[in-house]
Design a protein around this nucleic acid. Structure first.
Lengths: 159, 159
DNA sequence: TATTGTTATACTCTATAACTATA
DNA sequence: TATAGTTATAGAGTATAACAATA
């Protein structure tokens, strides 16, 4: 006989944010595991794909990962030959996807896309346009124009 | 001269969820640090306060923490004498707040309350009623009645 | 047989300090 | 003087497997 306990934290936005994030990460990592990838690997691969030649420090700044902690990530992606380093100047080195890395990235992006679609589908349709804006506001206190619900609707209407 | 890179992941709800959660946790933990507390400690203290006599396993199930990992948390809260264990039967032990623990919990709850208020205030007022429902939907795919925006508005109107 | 508490273990993520080589 | 990459280290959080005692 298992007692069912009410969660006294259920009304706290920060708690909901943490539980939702943790649950999403577990599920995403399960899907990525078959490719030997973690969600952080994919974020780095996608960053390099979008900005070929980006340096470790630059990528770390955008992704919120400290310089010192980038080393392990980079090494993890270099070992299976998904990325390569190319000297930019004496101290910086640009990051590039290899052909193999580009293929892995495309596969990973399909997983991500499926996952994100299903994640958004957990929310009732009437609330879906507000998901991205609300999450960005919670993150930074602001929301870029192209994430605003009005914009999303406008884009949908003109398409 | 620092190049400003665009974040190619910015439109992914799962990524926004993770960044928002991480940012919120950093800030909350900074505020709690002066009491020697982590956010996880507070969630456990609040759980025990709401359910005196709850067992480790029960608390872990509600909070999403595995049995094995509860041991370290419980020990961390028992050392400063914030909680005590009381045998329930041969194998289970109920958790209770000490008087000192109850005072710490009240202080922590005020920190949490301030934090949650300011977190919600990052979102424009028109979107605020949707924050809790959306986060709960993202977490579980459902939303309890008392978190629904209509309810929140109704409660606000009748108050 | 299933559950509780526990130990051991390992991996990810994060944070800080310090070093070197270079700009 | 500031920045890029690196090493070392530590602490949280999380995951699995196994064990003894008890239900």
């Amino acid at each position: 006989m298992t007692r069912i306990m009410q969660d006294p934290l259920i009304s706290l936005p920060g708690y909901l944010l943490r539980r939702a994030s943790a649950a999403a990460l577990v599920e995403l990592n399960q899907r990525l595991a078959m490719f030997g990838l973690h969600h952080t690997d994919v974020s780095l691969l996608m960053m390099i794909e979008a900005h070929p030649g980006i340096t470790q420090s630059e990528a770390g700044r955008v992704l919120g990962i400290q310089r010192a902690n980038m080393v392990a990530f980079i090494n993890r992606l270099e070992k299976p030959e998904w990325i390569e380093r190319r000297k930019v100047d004496g101290r910086s080195q640009g990051l590039l996807l290899t052909a193999k890395g580009a293929r892995t990235t495309e596969r990973a992006k399909r997983i991500i896309e499926d996952f994100e679609t299903q994640l958004l589908a957990r929310v009732p349709p009437s609330l879906q346009p507000h998901v991205r804006p609300i999450l960005h506001y919670l993150w930074t206190g602001t929301c870029p124009d192209d994430l605003l619900a009005d914009q999303a609707i406008a884009i949908g209407e003109t398409a």
